[in-house]
């Protein structure tokens, strides 16, 4: 809903933005633009965090700096966020925010509701497409803020060649490298990966359940990955029979769908276009006579699904 970016200078800024915003919607957060990145030639990295879990947002992160300053990334210990401990990631993110004269960053927090809604559109939008759009949005945002980007490194989602082609068609002026394991190959992608991962963890920890106002919330959801028994148990325990899960859950994950099927009321959607006419029940049919459609006086009524009735 809100495509505005919020500027944050520290991790506690980030946490307060996250807990202030409605987490059914996407949230976008960024650093100030370092002056050096407006004039000097810059590199930019992109990575994501939280693609697989059935719970919580997926976060896209970018970080950028002038090519001449990239040695700072190694000094800070930027490596693949998955091989670093949580504490190490938090510490490095802290350092990144302190290097505001040199390093810039931005994240797009894609809410679980957005993910479910995209997947359950009539014309399905795949997770890869969501990812690509998020990456494109971040690059565009940084360009719009006047950063002199020359080279972009992206951790791939799907086949790298196609993805690279897609990005090049949108940003023909940039040199773009899309590759597998970019987070361990390019320190600028590692930095992006750390931003994304730290902020995803913060978003999960600070999740505000609108469904459970004023209650102590069960946050024992384990790893959040669908094959984790603790996560599965969490899903089973936190079901409303009508509405299903609280909005922290990605309804479109097959694990979530299965748990709903067995533990909540069945919901039928009028989804097949062809069937719609056949099955269509005009609201007025609730007031019909002897289950028979009454001969109408004019097509006006037929067209509008109206019948004349005197009997309830």
């Amino acid at each position: 809903m809100n495509s505005n970016y919020r500027v944050c200078h520290t991790i506690s800024d980030v946490k307060s933005v996250i807990s202030f915003e409605n987490n059914s919607f996407d949230v976008r957060i960024e650093s100030d633009v370092p002056e050096t990145t407006k004039t000097e030639k810059c590199i930019l990295g992109i990575d994501e965090a939280g693609r697989g879990p059935v719970l919580g947002p997926m976060v896209y992160g970018t970080s950028y700096c002038s090519a001449d300053n990239q040695v700072i990334l190694k000094t800070l210990g930027c490596a693949d966020s998955k091989v670093l401990s949580e504490q190490a990631r938090d510490d490095i993110f802290d350092e990144i925010t302190k290097q505001s004269e040199i390093l810039g960053w931005a994240v797009h927090i894609i809410s679980p509701t957005t993910i479910s809604n995209c997947s359950f559109r009539r014309q399905k939008c795949s997770l890869n497409e969501i990812s690509h759009n998020a990456a494109i949005g971040l690059i565009q945002r940084v360009l719009d803020r006047g950063v002199n980007i020359c080279e972009v490194f992206v951790d791939t989602v799907g086949p790298p060649e196609k993805y690279q082609e897609k990005l090049l068609s949108i940003f023909p002026q940039l040199k773009i490298t899309v590759s597998k394991k970019a987070d361990s190959l390019f320190p600028i992608v590692s930095a992006a990966s750390i931003c994304a991962k730290v902020i995803r963890d913060a978003a999960l920890k600070n999740w505000k359940f609108v469904e459970r106002p004023g209650e102590d919330v069960d946050s024992n959801w384990g790893s959040g990955y669908p094959n984790d028994p603790v996560t599965k148990e969490y899903l089973k325990k936190n079901i409303d029979p009508v509405f299903g899960f609280p909005s922290i859950v990605r309804f479109s994950w097959s694990t979530a769908e299965l748990v709903l099927k067995n533990n909540a009321a069945q919901v039928d959607w009028s989804d097949e276009e062809e069937d719609e006419d056949e099955k269509s029940v005009p609201i007025t049919s609730f007031f019909g006579q002897n289950n028979k459609q009454v001969q109408q006086k004019t097509p006006f009524f037929d067209d509008r699904g109206l019948i004349v009735t005197t009997k309830f």
Partner: peptide, 8 residues
Amino acid sequence: HSSLRGKP
């Protein structure tokens, strides 16, 4: 706009 069982 709203969301029900993940459907927009």
